[in-house]
Design a protein around this nucleic acid. Structure first.
Lengths: 225, 225
DNA sequence: GTGGCAAACTTGACAATGTCAAGATCGAGT
DNA sequence: ACTCGATCTTGACATTGTCAAGTTTGCCAC
């Protein structure tokens, strides 16, 4: 936050905007904020590194120093997405009844609500082509989200599941259900079902229906063969 | 530049198939074939109109006349994908026992097997940003695939479902399961589960498990309010 | 203080891409 | 035979991601 009042060097300094310095100070955060804005407005497909830099008020090559390349920036933002999703899951769980079935429903509903409320962000989080899946922060954040689901499911099976219930296939089934539903919904594949209802409202009602049916399936005996 | 004396001779012996264009013979088909090759090799993310034209042996602007733009070409290819998927579903159904449960499993397994065997193609089919969802051929082909699932599910419910079974939520659940599982698998999100097994093998075994659990849920009473 | 140094930005360039406009070529109908 | 229109090519343009080299500035040793 320094004012530039010194003598002018040989090169004409173009940054006339008052209050701006050569060093941004918090470019990393500014870029992430710009990315969020951009994704919200235009979707993942129209995201552009240069436009992102433009909105943050820096040159087109500035992001490279903080994120390496475009993939780096999107990876960082995707990690933030998983963190927010975990936060939402915890909030939903805290507000739900403490029985295992309600807790499991809370996690599933949080998954769906997050997806609907953050369409582009959610889509980015599962677009391997734009991300670096090996990034430690991303892995950790994704793992944390999965862990929420895993714990809720384990508790559910302990309480309602059959004695010989195997965790893995049921975990997989639950994840597939919420993820598939979210994906199809966001890709406008369910518009015929949804009719006039808003996506958020539909994710609520249809989501609850599905989670109910799902729970029924989970309570039955072990899968065949 | 090279002059085209190669074209001087009269009609070069070309395919007797009477059909469309004559300049290239069948540029439309050649471009679709090139697209398939490209997608198979490099994935949706690296698909390029120019590279596609290059492989078909024509100039970079040639595709425009047949498909309008890149989206047009990909849309046409996605439609083909749905058609092939329907064909696979029918083949699986024909080979399966005729009872409703086996028929439903066959459709689900066909969905999964198609996805695994045609990764990029499948991903393209559900990537709205690269497609024109309003395209009539695409809509029809997609609808046909959905119809396979719908019929199998209706028959299943008639035979095994509870009396008051509502079709829509159960259809949605089934679609979400197979689609979510396929999506997660193809995005390498299930590698920890899959361990060393091949994707195809895993789609078989884990898919069968899930479809079994799913069927159990579908046979229960109506979902809670 | 006062250099000096490395991190934080900028500028400029490059190859690629999708699309458009204008020209070239060739098969076919009349 | 001869135009005509569909098919294909060439060339150009704006944009993009990334790299290399230059510029600015905070800050730490002295």
């Amino acid at each position: 936050m320094k004012r530039r009042n010194r003598r002018v060097p040989k090169k004409p300094a173009r940054r006339a905007r008052a209050g701006e310095t050569y060093h941004h100070g918090a470019l990393r955060e500014a870029l992430l904020a710009a990315a969020e804005e951009l994704l919200l407005e235009q979707g993942v497909e129209h995201f552009t590194l240069r436009e992102c830099a433009r909105r943050a008020g820096v040159s087109h090559a500035a992001p490279a120093h903080h994120f390496g390349d475009a993939r780096g920036l999107l990876t960082a933002f995707a990690a933030i997405g998983f963190e927010r999703m975990v936060a939402l899951m915890r909030r939903y769980r805290a507000q739900a009844p403490s029985d295992a079935a309600a807790q499991l429903r809370a996690v599933g509903q949080a998954y769906l609500d997050f997806a609907v409320a953050n369409r582009a962000h959610f889509q980015l989080m599962f677009r391997s082509d734009r991300l670096d899946r090996e990034n430690p922060e991303l892995k950790a954040a994704g793992q944390a989200a999965f862990e929420e689901l895993r714990q809720a499911m384990a508790a559910f099976l302990r309480e309602h599941g059959p004695a010989d219930a195997d965790l893995s296939p049921r975990l997989l089934l639950a994840w597939s259900v919420v993820h598939g539903f979210a994906t199809l919904l966001l890709e406008s594949q369910l518009d015929a079902f949804r009719a006039k209802r808003s996506m958020a409202a539909y994710a609520r009602t249809a989501g609850a229906d599905m989670l109910g049916l799902l729970a029924a399936g989970l309570m039955t005996a072990a899968p065949p063969e």
